[in-house]
Design a protein around this nucleic acid. Structure first.
Lengths: 159, 159
DNA sequence: TCATATCATATGAATTTTCATATGAAAAGG
DNA sequence: CCTTTTCATATGAAAATTCATATGATATGA
């Protein structure tokens, strides 16, 4: 009877027990991981509702910006290469992406979206933009810029 | 001969092909996920070198701040509950954590560190602090505060 | 131009995670 | 009380991920 509300189930889990003012709460890597997970949760639910897993969606979103090789994709989507290869097998079977050997270098495989994949993507793109806008509603433009700059700095530091 | 350098292998993967100035590079959720992954990578490598998986380490780190239930732990470590239950099975077998039914509520299970677990933890704690200090070296204290505040805001927004 | 080293992706067995659901404990209602 | 509902954790089969390594393509050097 209860309509089943899969969205927003990860809501409480805070405010009691221990773990509220401990070491972790000031630890940058924890804040990053948790902010990333919490901020993405609802969008990820929407993505799954449309029949895509989050890794699949990441792959397709990356391809929106143009084709790339398997290795580049692995780095971009934060996956290990064998994990990605197997995901690509499934996505190729599902008709969402296409693999073709790079004519310039027979070791590389170039990935592109199929029309089907592009359609999925186009449907999700505005959704994602709206979602991000909603997330950032409580911040001033300066704050947003500062946050993104700081994040980019962290990313580059790793490379 | 080459000493094997497992650290810092995820280094290039940027600067060519497409995907350098596309949609993704400005997308907050992408920046968050990637910053989290890149910033943590080397510490995670150190953790694994000491014989812990990253999820195990997260569980133990959380317990450093005090005992908690399985559900609280799942929320804190960003895992699904069945995933955590099975991880706990392994960690209990390995002698790192202890489970005991909450005397106040027979449904809940309270988690604590064993002495062995605590020892691992104590060894990793200073390492983690140093690592974070290194990460934040390029930022002013004000920037650090602003970043952490922004991240906390994102976390709270989800709840 | 052959070895040989290196690089990019694929493969397979073992491990881990997930999804759906079961189990058992407390709360609520009659 | 006794039934029903809700809550917290566990379980089991299926799916995805990982680790180590294989495969096949391209540089490199004698």
């Amino acid at each position: 009877m209860t309509e089943k509300t899969p969205l927003k189930k990860r809501s409480r889990a805070r405010g009691h027990g221990a773990n509220d003012t401990g070491f972790l709460d000031g630890f940058l890597l924890y804040l990053l991981a948790r902010a990333s997970a919490e901020a993405s949760a609802d969008l990820h639910d929407m993505v799954r509702k449309r029949g895509l897993s989050v890794p699949e969606w990441r792959v397709m979103f990356t391809l929106h910006d143009g084709p790339c090789t398997v290795g580049e994709m692995a780095a971009h989507t934060l996956m290990q290469q064998p994990t990605l290869t197997k995901l690509l097998d499934r996505m190729e079977t599902a008709g969402r992406v296409k693999r073709q050997v790079d004519p310039a270098d027979g070791r590389r495989v170039l990935l592109t979206l199929t029309p089907t994949g592009r359609a999925h993507n186009d449907a999700l793109m505005p959704l994602s933009k709206d979602y991000e806008a909603g997330l950032l509603a409580g911040y001033t433009p300066a704050e947003v810029t500062a946050l993104k700059t700081a994040l980019r700095k962290l990313i580059d530091r790793g490379n």
